[in-house]
Design a binder for these strands. Structure first.
Length: 337
DNA sequence: CACTTGACCTGTCCGC
DNA sequence: TGCGGACAGGTCAAGT
């Protein structure tokens, strides 16, 4: 589940490999995964250069020249995967409107696009999985799509660049989306404009945390942490992890938090996010070895998440699991009060 | 008003 | 073996 560290990892990866590329075509295999597409979209997208990649919370913003921005929210199962040139041409899609350069947008593309992808100019030997090219990159929900052949059945949008490279938006469950909006209107986006502070910013102090928390509310601290309007970027995994590090019970009311507890929580949030970021989130590199995708991801990043019944790393008592605000919640009943 | 639950979606895992 | 159901969780909408 891509949370702040994973999304930031993707931002850095795409910045490294995709910046400066120019869009040749965009194919919507799942139109619902791409918001804000209208008659003007084609004109905006085709020929646009990717000039900057920013992040706010779990939201990625791919800034294009021409004054437009492609927002990407991966939600649960989203992935952004960049492949440098020589990828298998996109044929046999199951439909959907298709914004391409050569011809108009054709709702039916079966035979049309089959061979239309310009044969890569620098098609080398090109290995598939295992030995990814230097410029390949993938991040998001850990699945084999990160290293497998693309497009695959969870591919929703394919962005082809003029140099033959591709950016794939994959999303098994279609919760995520791409959204095209004028950069000048970013501030009016409902979700973006209401996001809380960035927990990894240098000026996010414990006082800042106290300020953004609803200190008079009796709602459980965990649900406050999950609220993107309170703090941006924390999801279920890092909420559980932060609270464990801070020794705070997830159901504890916000109004019951003392200053020392808030300081511990502040430290816990920052350290688990930073730690995960240092580990590179969950990117394709973690999965080159194939076996045990899930296990490795959780081993790397979780002390309590997904470990119910296993011994608490602090006291050795078994980790508990309950439901809070409809979410699986993992904690140590002894260490977290 | 404050908080909880359901819907969205699809792949995986478990039990019968 | 096959099938049904529970489960996973980010966010919004609806419900309590």
């Amino acid at each position: 589940m891509p949370e702040l560290p994973e999304v930031e990892t993707i931002r850095r990866g795409l910045e490294r490999v995709a910046l400066g590329r120019r869009i040749a075509s965009v194919e919507l295999l799942s139109p619902r995964s791409f918001l804000g597409v209208n008659d003007d979209a084609r004109e905006v997208l085709i020929g646009a250069e990717l000039i900057q990649i920013a992040r706010r919370g779990k939201l990625l913003m791919l800034h294009l020249d021409k004054g437009f921005t492609l927002m990407a929210h991966l939600r649960m199962t989203g992935q952004l995967i960049f492949r440098d040139g020589a990828s298998e041409a996109g044929g046999g899609y199951d439909g959907g409107l298709c914004v391409t350069d050569g011809r108009g947008s054709e709702p039916n593309n079966d035979s049309e696009t089959a061979g239309s992808e310009m044969a890569g100019s620098d098609t080398a030997g090109s290995e598939t999985a295992g030995n990814a090219a230097e410029a390949d990159f993938g991040g998001g929900y850990p699945s084999r799509s990160l290293i497998g052949e693309l497009p695959d059945r969870s591919t929703r949008v394919v962005i082809a660049f003029t140099d033959g490279s591709h950016l794939y938006f994959n999303d098994q469950r279609r919760f995520g989306y791409l959204k095209l909006i004028p950069t000048a209107l970013l501030g009016e986006d409902d979700f973006l404009s209401r996001l809380g502070p960035e927990p990894l910013d240098a000026d996010f102090t414990w006082r800042e945390l106290r300020e953004c928390l609803p200190m008079h509310s009796s709602r459980p601290i965990k649900t406050a942490l999950l609220d993107q309007q309170v703090i941006a970027g924390i999801g279920n995994i890092y909420a559980d992890e932060s609270l464990f590090l801070a020794g705070i019970h997830p159901a504890r009311p916000v109004c019951g938090l003392t200053v020392p507890a808030i300081k511990r929580l502040h430290a816990g949030i920052r350290s688990c996010l930073q730690q995960s970021l240092d580990d590179g989130g969950s990117t394709a590199r973690d999965y080159v070895d194939a076996e045990g995708l899930r296990g490795e991801y959780l081993d790397l990043h979780a002390k309590v998440y997904g470990r119910s019944g296993q011994p608490c790393p602090k006291c050795g008592r078994p980790i508990s699991k309950t439901r809070l605000a409809g979410r699986g919640t993992h904690f140590c009943a002894h260490c977290q009060r």
